[in-house]
Computed example of a mutant assay.
Amino acid sequence: MTTAADPRIAYRVVAPAPSFTHLTRLTDDTGLFEHARHATVRREHGYCTDDVARGLVVTSREPEPSPVVLELAECYLGFLTHAQDARGAFHNRLGHDRRWNDEPALGDWWGRALWGLGTAVARSPAPWIRDEALVAFALGALRRSPHPRAMAFAGLGAAEVLRRHPQHVGAASLLADAAVAVGKPDPDRRWPWPQDRLTYANAALAEVVIAAGHAHADSALLTKGLGMLAWLRDVQSRDGRLSVVPASGWRRGGVRFHHDQQPIEVAALADACATAAAITGDPVWDAAVRHCVGWFLGDNDADAPMWDPNTGGGYDGLTRHGPNLNQGAESTLALISTMQHARRWS
């Protein structure tokens, strides 16, 4: 294991512009299909709120969206408002037959839905999207999940709402509660993480603490979040490149595997480091984002590009034998999200 590269010597990456071609291929007039075989949509698996919410995040982040991207954002917003019940919870799984396969609940999809809605409130150039997203966000923000990651995702949405509406009481309360839900770091410097196991989208936990510390002018909380993120960045650096925790996770004191790395881990780290860079101005965080971009372009444990330039799709995982060539929604959204951050250097 090595520490993060010195930002003064960080390699320069030439990142492609975010492409929405494959995302458009995966989307119909209802929502975003979850799975693909190579680049071909697998409609039989239906849609999920998790992915649609991520879709609303990346389409809302586009500073000058094309008509196609704006249509995608409208579609994803419509899906989320349809998934939400009268008490603010969300369904997650919709079949291709347009029937929900579950009951509304407060799992990760609730948190991601609020993240997508909050991002639309803060960043969409379309006022009708911003207005409708705020209504749905405010309803969902009345609820609290018992799951730390769900709360972290929701808190990121709340931080976005506060960018446009600094006095929004519901968003401020949700963001504060999300930081508390993450938990306190362990005093052991070898594992200063609030939990005994790293699982998925780990960097989102650090990011929401950073965002809460910044929004509430709490320097101790900001320092806590930055410390969490610095440790996570360092333990996911190997031989000068990014090597994220695999799908099986990594338990404190356990064996660390390096195969079956998921693009969502890279995207979560890129998001968190971009937030840290924007708040602190420290170039070390820009260097970390470059490593995330580089992972998709082939600077990873398999020396293999993790996307298909012919389709614009992201590959579903990095196995011990190379990329999983399926190009599902989650991996494609992770690719787009990470490449959006590369605009900082264009």
Rank of each mutant, 00 (worst) to 15 (best):
L156Y: 01
A158G: 01
A158F: 09
A159K: 01
A159P: 12
A159G: 15
E160C: 15
E160G: 10
V161M: 10
L162W: 11
L162F: 06
R163L: 11
R163I: 12
R163K: 13
R163M: 11
R163G: 06
R164A: 15
R164V: 05
H165P: 00
P166C: 10
Q167F: 09
Q167M: 10
V169G: 05
V169L: 13
A171M: 07
A172P: 01
A172E: 09
S173K: 14
L174E: 12
L175W: 11
L175P: 12
L175N: 04
L175C: 10
A176F: 08
A176T: 14
A176S: 14
A176H: 15
D177C: 07
D177K: 13
A178K: 11
A178M: 10
A178Y: 04
A179D: 14
V180C: 00
V180Q: 11
G183T: 02
K184V: 14
K184N: 03
P185R: 01
P185G: 02
D186L: 01
P187I: 09
R189W: 00
W191G: 05
P192I: 01
D196Q: 12
D196T: 09
R197Y: 00
R197L: 02
L198V: 06
L198Q: 07
L198S: 07
T199K: 09
Y200G: 05
A201M: 06
A201F: 07
N202W: 03
A203V: 11
A204V: 09
L205R: 05
L205N: 13
L205S: 11
L205I: 04
A206P: 04
A206I: 11
E207V: 01
V208N: 03
V208M: 03
V209C: 04
V209I: 09
V209E: 00
V209R: 02
I210F: 07
I210L: 08
A211W: 15
A212C: 02
A212M: 09
G213F: 05
G213M: 04
H214Y: 10
H214Q: 12
A215M: 06
H216P: 03
H216E: 05
A217E: 15
A217W: 13
D218H: 02
S219K: 15
A220R: 15
A220E: 14
A220P: 03
A220C: 10
L221S: 11
L221H: 02
T223S: 15
T223W: 05
K224E: 15
K224W: 06
G225R: 06
G225P: 07
G225Q: 10
L226K: 10
L226R: 06
G227W: 07
G227H: 09
G227D: 09
M228C: 10
M228A: 12
L229K: 00
L229D: 11
A230N: 08
A230I: 02
W231K: 00
L232T: 01
R233A: 05
R233F: 00
R233Q: 13
D234N: 13
V235K: 03
V235E: 10
V235S: 06
Q236R: 07
S237F: 13
S237T: 15
R238L: 11
R238D: 07
D239R: 14
D239F: 14
G240V: 10
G240K: 12
R241D: 01
S243F: 04
V244L: 12
